[in-house]
Design a binder for these strands. Sequence first.
DNA 1: TCCAATATGTGGCTATGCCATATATAGATT
DNA 2: AATCTATATATGGCATAGCCACATATTGGA
Lengths: 98, 98
Amino acid sequence: MLILSLVEARPRHGYEISKLIEQRSGGTVRFHVASLYPLLYRLEKRGWLQGRWVEKTGQRRRRYYRLTPRGRRVLASQRRGWQIFVEAINRITETENA
Amino acid sequence: MLILSLVEARPRHGYEISKLIEQRSGGTVRFHVASLYPLLYRLEKRGWLQGRWVEKTGQRRRRYYRLTPRGRRVLASQRRGWQIFVEAINRITETENA
DNA sequence: TCCAATATGTGGCTATGCCATATATAGATT
DNA sequence: AATCTATATATGGCATAGCCACATATTGGA
């Protein structure tokens, strides 16, 4: 859901995604490279992301991932699922004044 | 955090905990026995829970777990961590109107 | 007699994140 | 010239931990 959300508005490359996750979470959530890249491959294999190599002079090659229509539907579903999950966890873990 | 929360107010046994998680989450969150019991042992080993066998006639023996002072502190910390985590995830996954 | 609910328990599989390490380029520092 | 940092992608192997399937035992209802 994190990755799909970040490439929702525009294509991004792996390194950019990992930096965004770290920045926006205030360092709370970190995605290590050894998790990130294999995950990107899985998402692409599932047809949720579409990757494209972009080469520019004076820059290392980057692989930009964009959200596929299928990925967009999955993301919407994941957002709903996340909401339901958080509410469920909160109901379970609420302090009981017993 | 789920388990520690559920034994916060009073001691409960494993089966009761698993049923409570399923009920309170509306079936969203399920803890299978093969996850639950090993987890209870881990929590007891860490000193967060204290288990006690209770035998009553006309009932199968049950192991009731209560929260230790150490477990209480851990639970408070986990609740804070969960809040911070959810906020971080929400910040990352917010829809961008770009 | 059979079935469902209650209650605890485990071997093995699988998914997945992380450690450590690797490769490669560019710019800044020493 | 050499070193360090940031950028950027990549992978082998390890550890954690949940789940499938199965097992054991008791009580009560159909």
